[in-house]
Design a binder for these strands. Structure first.
Lengths: 146, 146
DNA sequence: ACTTGACCTCAAGTTGGCTTGAATTCGTAG
DNA sequence: CTACGAATTCAAGCCAACTTGAGGTCAAGT
């Protein structure tokens, strides 16, 4: 098995050595042993770091990430908690989709003020709703519904 | 037209008054006038704040958000920049999807160590691949398309 | 008129997630 | 063997995005 210096891990993940030391300090990753003073990492750490950066992209704190996958990528949490996390991510995906759609609309819409553009308002207003957007409403939606 | 106290804005958006004052301080939102000392907001601010929180969920800084939609929800940026932002969000959605799938897998997989589970490795490794299927859309996409 | 409580300002503090710098220790190539 | 570069520790610093606290103002209800 080949072991990796912190510099190599850094180069292959794009995460700076200082950040990697910090991750080790807080128990998010671990080095197997030292070669002199130098930390030696298993190549598994590359996958773990990928998970960490994905988690960060999802807006989770390092602490939450540590909870999802222990230091060896093994989950500490019970099934249902993990599924709730997954649901949380699904919610976030909904939000991101709405934001993306809104941005694209803003890019192309000719209306002088977006606040008066019904498409814009609808995009933003529906963004938080769970599940399918309900097309049938008893009355029109207002900003005051937020 | 009805004007809103900071407390009402807070109650209806879930954003604390201190945060709203901070947003105003940095020019992200604005109050129309004061009633005594009290800020009075137009109801449009509710929509703006929704955009702000969506942007935050997407991992954008307040500064970036300010750039996307000026203080009245009008974009300062040229079309192509907005579309690039939208693409950025699409990338993030891919990452989130991968993370979600990984979490669900971890929740259900019986393997003793995830590091040795090929499904797990594939899920994580695949997540970064470029050149995903890119759907061409002729009309703006809606949240309900997901 | 008085009281209440929601609001105000301003400065300072907090948290998370690192980065930076100084002083030092090693391993390897020449 | 020596020099070099890559690594180490530790404390301090930094940034964003708020929050907190002290001390003050004000509008509205009784």
């Amino acid at each position: 098995m080949k072991f990796l210096d912190i510099g190599e891990v850094s180069a292959r993940t794009g995460v700076k050595p200082s950040a990697l030391r910090y991750y080790e300090e807080i128990g998010l990753i671990e080095s197997l042993f030292r070669h002199g003073l130098r930390r030696q990492f298993s190549s598994d750490v590359l996958l773990q770091i990928k998970l960490i950066t994905m988690g960060q992209a999802a807006g989770f704190s390092l602490e939450e990430i540590a909870g999802m996958f222990g230091r060896d990528g093994r989950a500490d949490l019970p099934r249902d908690v993990l599924h709730r996390k997954a649901d949380e991510i699904d919610d976030k995906i909904q939000q991101l989709s709405a934001l993306r759609d809104t941005l694209r609309h803003v890019a192309d819409c000719k209306a002088p003020s977006h606040m008066e553009c019904p498409t814009f308002r609808r995009l933003v207003e529906f963004s938080g709703k769970r599940g399918r957007v309900r097309l049938k409403r008893k009355r029109p939606a207002f900003a005051s519904d937020i």
